[in-house]
């Protein structure tokens, strides 16, 4: 096998793809977002459940659940996301999300913070393939969207 391909499809990614964590839509939840990648048709529906939503960045992420259809990269990324974000505060999660976005925009040159990103560092190789970056980011964008909706609903209620 070519090293390039193996650099992209790290064992960690294939493991998450074959055995995704926290998959399936669960109740209760505060907000839901549905995102698609219009160039390939990948789809994700993602729900967030927050504790103390009025605490802003200090609100705690009690659950992230999702249903997704797509390639190994998008599926594994959603699985890793739930591992990383469930149990954190929204503020901490935003730091992780920003670090992951920066890694995806690094064109293969990024030096990821392994303490912060944990399994998500395995996606470093994906950043070399512009067509696949969207796959890796799909669920993260859905999480950001769902979280801001949860806050918007809280402030309007």
């Amino acid at each position: 096998m070519q090293p390039q391909l193996e650099a992209m499809y790290q064992e960690i990614i294939l493991d998450h793809y074959k055995n995704p964590h926290h998959k399936g839509l669960r109740d209760p939840y505060d907000a839901e977002a549905h995102h698609v990648n219009p160039t390939c048709g990948d789809e994700v529906t993602l729900r967030v459940r927050l504790a103390g939503v009025d605490a802003g960045d200090d609100a705690k992420i009690e659950d992230v659940s999702y249903d997704a259809m797509g390639c190994s990269i998008s599926q594994a990324s959603a699985s890793v996301l739930t591992d990383l974000l469930i149990g954190r505060t929204v503020g901490e999660a935003q730091r992780v999300s920003e670090a992951f976005l920066a890694l995806m925009q690094s064109k293969g040159e990024g030096e990821p913070d392994e303490d912060l990103l944990e399994d998500a560092v395995a996606f470093a190789g994906v950043s070399k393939y512009p067509a696949r970056i969207k796959c890796a980011l799909l669920s993260w964008m859905a999480w950001k969207d769902a979280t801001s909706r949860a806050f918007a609903e809280e402030s309007s209620s």
Binding site: C40, C71, I73
Partner: peptide, 12 residues
């Protein structure tokens, strides 16, 4: 195997 992944291997 999702088509994206088939395509990635072929591209390689």
């Amino acid at each position: 195997i999702h088509p994206h992944d088939v395509g990635q291997v072929l591209d390689d």
